[in-house]
Write a protein that binds this DNA or RNA. Structure first.
Lengths: 231, 231
DNA sequence: TATATCTATTTGTATAGACAAAAACGGGCC
DNA sequence: GGCCCGTTTTTGTCTATACAAATAGATATA
């Protein structure tokens, strides 16, 4: 990693880099592929490799389930099931989930406490045909997120983060003021193209935030040595 | 990808998988390494590879600069510089940034308009010793984020997403009600361990959200064939 | 029993060679 | 000029081999 290359600039071809740094082309390829995967460079056959024009601000967020997160941080976690009802998916719900209406769902509402204080409200829909075992699960001892994680592997997830004002019911449960800013995480998970679960988790804004880091791979081909990572 | 493995279960060793799927160990290693990188499996020398106990909910968010994002979505973007002042970093600012106080900074405040409507307030600190060119830049035509992206490549970024209630000044500028929920993105970028810029971008909660997808790698070693990706 | 040391297993990574796939480029043709 | 087609460059990936590094488990020792 000597002089930083400028956006759009062409990188020497793999064979030249291999010769320059006295390593095999495979090693160069692996390093450059890693850079490409992180969006640092663009690669096109025959055309060559180029420093990415616009650095994409890509950040990786580890969005854990609340109980796991609390445990890892050394806090006490507890939860109360406020609502648990089997329904059929109506039209509006179906539109929200992108599924067909009519299927049986389990609708849950759950309050999460961290160190005894309300930390989040979880409103969840579980598709019962995707997770039949949920029908007989009370979720009294294991919170829904953890139970689901252990039961069903998901193959795709989508997250949305929103700021909302607390409605009266939410404010009361979270012991905050009505209208206070809250951070809502919406997560939908699929398996083989079918929704497994949809959940909205609302945190009081003054007690929660999401953080993510992005550390691009250093183009450290130059300080390459036989016994160090190249990625 | 035949039967899904259960968490904690041990995966056959690379040599066995190579034999089983009639490919070289390098190929197996590459596939498993990719899975490990995504947190799907855990690997330990001598011990073996194991299906990750807790599926880490890791999501990748593309957090673009506002103007770029608006352009991509086909919207009109404009901005106004509300404040532009050269100061010295005081103690509280230094603590916030994790830098030493006393250095010269450029403090900016900027209103972003999308399709003519206020969409965000940007409050930014630029370290002038890291970006000396900023001293003579007015940012009247190019918004700060875009200008910086073109000027200084960053090597590390940290993002925090928070929900906050609009203070009176923010509410007035964003043409929303005081106390309304807002989504604030905080981003700090470094180059070679030194802060380049720190920015807080506050969006009205009813006009903004962040989204991210996570699609884990399929363990598609079984349908391996000479001319398909193994990762 | 507890601790240190050795050994064998497993992953990590480099290498050289081979061929495939994409696509930029050039020539020939209308 | 514009279009088609073969050539060539560059990346993408697999193979087989080799050795290094970490460490679980076995053995020796206190």
């Amino acid at each position: 990693m000597n002089g930083d290359w400028k956006p759009g600039q062409r990188i020497p071809i793999e064979h030249e880099l291999a010769e320059q740094y006295r390593c095999s082309r495979m090693t160069v390829n692996k390093a450059l592929s890693a850079l490409a995967e992180r969006g640092m460079i663009l690669r096109r056959r025959k055309a060559g490799s180029f420093v990415a024009a616009q650095q994409i601000d890509r950040t990786v967020m580890d969005i854990q389930d609340i109980s796991t997160e609390a445990e890892l941080a050394g806090h006490e976690h507890d939860h109360r099931i406020l609502k648990r009802r089997i329904e059929r998916l109506d039209a509006s719900g179906a539109a929200l989930l992108g599924e067909k209406p009519g299927g049986e769902i389990l609708r849950l509402q759950c309050l999460h406490l961290v160190d005894g204080k309300p930390n989040a409200i979880e409103r969840r829909i579980i598709m019962l045909d995707a997770v039949p075992l949920a029908r007989s699960e009370s979720f009294a001892s294991v919170p829904p997120a953890k139970w689901l994680l252990a039961q069903v592997p998901w193959s795709k997830a989508r997250h949305i983060i929103r700021a909302v004002s607390a409605d009266p019911a939410t404010a009361r449960l979270l012991e905050t003021e009505r209208g206070d800013a809250c951070l809502t995480l919406i997560r939908q998970t699929w398996q083989n193209g079918r929704t497994v679960t949809y959940v909205e988790i609302t945190h009081p804004g003054d007690r929660f935030q999401f953080a993510g880091d992005f550390q691009p791979a250093e183009p450290d081909i130059s300080d390459h040595s036989p016994r160090r990572h190249a990625t």
